[in-house]
Measured scan of single mutants.
Amino acid sequence: VTTYKLVINGKTLKGETTTKAVDAETSEKAFKQYANDNGVDGVWTYDDATKTFTVTEMV
C-alpha cells in the first residue's frame, strides 16, 4: 500500500489530499471521484516519482 497525493488547482477549490491505495490506477479512480464530487473538472497529470496527481481547471 502506497500513499498518493492529489493537488487541486481549481477555479473555486484549491488544496491537497492524500489516499492510500494498492496502485496508482486505484488512487486515480478515488481522486477523480473526489474531484467530481467537488465540482472540479480539469486536466490531469501524474508524477510517478512523487506519486502525485495534479488536476488543473482551465479558467
Score class of each variant (00 low, 15 high):
residue 47 D to A: 03
residue 23 D to R: 04
residue 7 V to Q: 05
residue 56 T to G: 03
residue 35 A to H: 02
residue 17 T to H: 14
residue 19 T to D: 05
residue 47 D to H: 05
residue 8 I to Y: 06
residue 51 K to I: 02
residue 2 T to Y: 14
residue 28 E to W: 15
residue 29 K to W: 07
residue 5 K to P: 04
residue 54 T to M: 07
residue 54 T to N: 04
residue 16 E to N: 07
residue 9 N to L: 14
residue 25 E to M: 13
residue 13 L to T: 09
residue 2 T to H: 14
residue 1 V to R: 10
residue 59 V to E: 14
residue 57 E to Q: 08
residue 31 F to T: 01
residue 55 V to G: 01
residue 21 A to G: 07
residue 47 D to K: 02
residue 37 D to E: 13
residue 40 V to G: 01
residue 58 M to D: 13
residue 29 K to F: 07
residue 27 S to F: 03
residue 8 I to P: 00
residue 20 K to L: 15
residue 20 K to S: 11
residue 27 S to M: 07
residue 4 Y to K: 04
residue 23 D to G: 04
residue 45 T to C: 09
residue 16 E to Y: 13
residue 22 V to R: 11
residue 26 T to C: 06
residue 35 A to K: 02
residue 18 T to E: 10
residue 11 K to W: 09
residue 33 Q to W: 05
residue 17 T to P: 02
residue 19 T to C: 15
residue 25 E to I: 12
residue 10 G to R: 03
residue 12 T to C: 15
residue 59 V to K: 10
residue 45 T to W: 07
residue 33 Q to A: 11
residue 31 F to P: 00
residue 12 T to I: 12
residue 57 E to C: 06
residue 34 Y to P: 00
residue 45 T to K: 07
residue 30 A to M: 14
residue 55 V to T: 02
residue 46 Y to W: 03
residue 42 G to V: 02
residue 18 T to M: 10
residue 29 K to Q: 10
residue 49 A to Y: 08
residue 5 K to I: 12
residue 52 T to M: 04
residue 38 N to C: 13
residue 46 Y to F: 06
residue 57 E to R: 03
residue 17 T to G: 04
residue 6 L to Q: 02
residue 52 T to W: 01
residue 15 G to N: 08
residue 49 A to R: 10
residue 17 T to M: 15
residue 14 K to S: 10
residue 35 A to E: 01
residue 3 T to Q: 11
residue 32 K to M: 08
residue 52 T to Q: 04
residue 40 V to T: 03
residue 50 T to C: 03
residue 27 S to I: 08
residue 21 A to C: 08
residue 53 F to N: 01
residue 55 V to P: 00
residue 6 L to S: 02
residue 53 F to M: 02
residue 48 D to M: 07
residue 11 K to D: 07
residue 22 V to C: 12
residue 53 F to A: 01
residue 48 D to P: 14
residue 33 Q to K: 14
residue 5 K to E: 03
residue 46 Y to G: 01
residue 40 V to K: 01
residue 2 T to P: 08
residue 32 K to L: 08
residue 58 M to S: 11
residue 2 T to S: 11
residue 4 Y to M: 01
residue 27 S to W: 04
residue 57 E to W: 06
residue 54 T to I: 08
residue 16 E to D: 06
residue 26 T to W: 06
residue 26 T to S: 11
residue 18 T to S: 12
residue 21 A to M: 04
residue 14 K to G: 05
residue 31 F to C: 01
residue 11 K to L: 14
residue 35 A to Y: 02
residue 18 T to Q: 09
residue 8 I to G: 00
residue 4 Y to H: 03
residue 56 T to W: 08
residue 30 A to K: 11
residue 19 T to N: 11
residue 45 T to A: 08
residue 6 L to K: 02
residue 35 A to C: 15
residue 41 D to K: 14
residue 20 K to W: 12
residue 49 A to L: 12
residue 46 Y to H: 00
residue 43 V to D: 08
residue 22 V to L: 12
residue 30 A to F: 15
residue 58 M to F: 13
residue 34 Y to I: 07
residue 51 K to G: 04
residue 52 T to H: 02
residue 50 T to I: 05
residue 47 D to C: 09
residue 54 T to P: 00
residue 9 N to C: 15
residue 48 D to V: 09
residue 20 K to P: 05
residue 7 V to N: 04
residue 37 D to F: 08
residue 34 Y to K: 02
residue 28 E to D: 04
residue 46 Y to I: 00
residue 55 V to S: 00
residue 49 A to W: 08
residue 42 G to S: 01
residue 8 I to S: 00
residue 33 Q to S: 08
residue 34 Y to C: 05
residue 32 K to R: 15
residue 59 V to S: 13
residue 27 S to L: 04
residue 2 T to D: 10
residue 44 W to K: 00
residue 28 E to C: 15
residue 2 T to C: 13
residue 5 K to L: 08
residue 50 T to V: 05
residue 10 G to F: 11
residue 52 T to S: 03
residue 21 A to H: 04
residue 27 S to V: 14
residue 40 V to P: 01
residue 29 K to T: 07
residue 9 N to H: 11
residue 12 T to A: 09
residue 43 V to R: 07
residue 40 V to Q: 02
residue 47 D to T: 04
residue 51 K to W: 05
residue 57 E to T: 07
residue 24 A to C: 14
residue 30 A to Q: 13
residue 44 W to M: 03
residue 53 F to R: 00
residue 32 K to G: 02
residue 23 D to L: 04
residue 23 D to I: 02
residue 17 T to Q: 09
residue 6 L to C: 06
residue 50 T to K: 06
residue 4 Y to F: 10
residue 3 T to W: 11
residue 50 T to F: 04
residue 43 V to Y: 11
residue 1 V to K: 12
residue 24 A to S: 09
residue 48 D to F: 07
residue 18 T to G: 04
residue 49 A to C: 09
residue 8 I to C: 06
residue 41 D to G: 07
residue 34 Y to V: 04
residue 57 E to L: 08
residue 53 F to H: 03
residue 3 T to E: 14
residue 5 K to M: 07
residue 22 V to E: 09
residue 10 G to M: 14
residue 41 D to I: 14
residue 13 L to R: 08
residue 39 G to K: 07
residue 57 E to N: 05
residue 13 L to K: 09
residue 3 T to G: 04
residue 2 T to L: 10
residue 39 G to C: 08
residue 42 G to T: 02
residue 14 K to P: 06
residue 1 V to S: 10
residue 29 K to S: 07
residue 11 K to H: 12
residue 6 L to T: 02
residue 6 L to N: 02
residue 16 E to M: 13
residue 46 Y to C: 00
residue 56 T to I: 07
residue 24 A to W: 15
residue 38 N to P: 01
